[in-house]
Design a protein around this nucleic acid. Structure first.
Lengths: 227, 227, 227, 227
DNA sequence: CATGAATGAGGTTTCATTCAT
DNA sequence: TATGAATGAAACCTCATTCAT
């Protein structure tokens, strides 16, 4: 009888961790494309195996179930995005709040754009996850909002910003980033990523920067608006 | 040869149009709840029939396939929302552009809130529609944006607004409305619909109203912010 | 509670015999066309009702089941053909055996041609009848052969014919008549009914007429062959 | 995208051609018996699977649909019969036309007798095939007739035969072969295959052989008739 | 006598998962 | 470690028949 191992909450029959990692990446890449194109439920494991250049048996060596594949994909995407966010925040500790928001938006939106399928995917398939996995996704999403909110609150403390409900503003920043992926079919026809980033950035700053600070940022802001 | 009647591109075996309408509404109401909760693919037709208080046979009297149910739901929701939008726009012909945008946002967001399941649903299940039905959904979504864009352009002509890319702004107004439904699980915890509407309204207006007009609207705007 | 009546082995709720007859003819005509085109099993009762200009309820007033419809069709066709055969035989009592066979073939083949759908139908759908109805069909078919065989035996007795196995010859005459309907798709392209009848007639007679009689029929036979 | 392999226009999920061949033969044998006994439409796939000693899933590994099973059966039977016919014709190139027809009839009828279910089947179920498969069946049937007609025309050229409409005669030879299978229920009671073959052979030859040749074949012909 | 809406058993087909090789 | 044939439960959909109107 073969030994059953659990690695990262997902079953495998292999105890070669490096191999498991490699194969699972292979699975994530193959399956994401399919799931995004056809939807999770409309894709069967034969197709997944094919897209990963594996046999069905091999697939089930590194994964315990179809839902595990979904979980791996989402887990992978969330980690990537979380790394983006963490990296951004740590690098923004020493700039002005205004500049931090500017940079955060730019980085987050570029992070979404780097793997738009993943973002679209979370909007469409999160409901198919089991409750605990779903909670993880939602918590992760909330974490992004919280990170952004942290920057906003810093600006409030330094009196650069005046915001009634920073959570709401942070949330808006985040979801408008997601929309760049989710509404690609529409936005692609009407603007570039750079335009989109500038529009959301200026819009947010105009809403939150207190008047006395506007003056100091005027030159840069004006350039953007006039560009 | 086969006795197949079509209403609205959806097959029925009945000639009684009123009955078809009633039963289909029954189906739409029963199925939407289920589909939103479990997802379209995870819900089977036996469950749908039960939720509609019908037998399977009766269900298939008024509907040709499972996908038809999806189509009916989306068609119904789009019609409702389109009616909202049209109604709004016709009533806003004689007010100032600023006031029109205020009212449009209020009405659209309340429209979304009236049936949040439907909006969430379109974000999750549109991909399961056949190409022609999917096109209809996307066109309808584009129509909402266009309606809003029309109001913005009116403001530009009257020089109330100054906007670089009105399509982009209109799109933002619309999707932030959708987000009220899609991200309910988050937003419910942090604000009411009224707050959400006010936040997006003020944010947008601050971005687009030209300075000389800000003065004239100042009293009202201040009230909002301070409320 | 309505009275249940049986008429001709088939259930009806009506006791107006004339009406039953009319409606059933209506059913036979409507259903035969459909059954021949799509096959008995592929045709549903909704389609049958439509083809008969009846509601489903009306259909079931005059017929107890779908199989009853099949039974009525086959019964009707067999009666017609049996009448043909009986009529033919009675009119042929006083002619020479050779002439009788000539006329029998002509009449039988024309009988088949008068309703080719029915003959095709019996070859395709007899197996769908219940055992007792199926036995009736087979017996009826055997009766046709027996009638023809009777004419052949008459010729043997009068020494017009010399036949080893009259049953076999009679059977051939009958099935070649059926083939005119069953293989219509092929024969239509290569001959007319008249040619077909002449070919089978001459072929049979050449096989069975004793030499001394050939002389007496020579003039007519030659004409046919040379025609 | 989907891993669907096609062999012979019929879907399979297996790459192992030999296995596919084996399993399909298994399916053909199991299903033919059932389809002939109960009819195609009255037989369900569960029964087919059981008759083939397979699970439903295994069945659908080697076949894409129920209609595919029908198609495989008919394709298999047609190939067998075509091989018979081709073999016969090639071996008959160097014999007299009379002898060729004798042998052709013998071989064709024995070919029908080797798998009478198949012939009966084509008469009953061809209509259930999709148009393109149906055309193949009809073309194949026409090919048999054409092969026979070729032999007849050879006899006409060598002046062994005199025939007005060789197509019609060839057609008769073929369908009377089919009738041995289709009307087994009748013929079995009245003659053996050998008698049936002799009867049709003599009948045909008497019809087509020109008088001067009859003499030369007289001895053999007489033997046959008297046997 | 006539209607056609309703029923629900049973049909075909798919697919996640296992296991012998 | 790797393969892919096999399983069978469960999905969608049809349709003969009944019965309230």
């Amino acid at each position: 009888m073969e030994q059953i191992l659990i690695n990262n909450d997902v079953r495998t029959y292999s105890n070669d961790e490096a191999l498991v990692k490699t194969r699972r990446l292979q699975i994530i890449q193959g399956a994401t494309k399919l799931f995004v194109k056809k939807g999770y439920d409309r894709t069967n494991m034969r197709e997944v195996a094919k897209a990963c250049n594996m046999s069905m048996g091999a697939l089930y060596h590194y994964v315990g179930s179809k839902e595990d594949v979904l979980y791996l994909i989402i887990d992978h995407g969330l980690s990537n995005l979380a790394a983006f966010v963490e990296g951004a925040c740590s690098r923004l500790e020493n700039v002005s709040a205004t500049e931090a928001i500017r940079e955060f938006i730019e980085m987050y939106y570029r992070g979404v754009d780097a793997d738009p399928d993943f973002t679209l995917f979370t909007y469409q398939e999160t409901k198919n996850l089991n409750p605990s996995a779903r909670r993880r996704v939602l918590e992760s999403a909330a974490r992004d909002v919280a990170a952004c909110e942290g920057l906003l609150r810093r600006g409030i403390e330094t009196e650069e910003f005046k915001i009634d409900n920073p959570t709401l503003v942070a949330h808006k920043i985040i979801v408008l980033g997601h929309m760049w992926a989710v509404r690609r079919w529409f936005l692609r026809k009407h603007c570039t990523l750079e335009e989109y980033i500038r529009e959301q950035t200026e819009s947010v700053l105009k809403r939150i920067v207190v008047d006395s600070h506007v003056a100091s940022n005027e030159s840069k802001g004006k350039q953007d608006v006039l560009a």
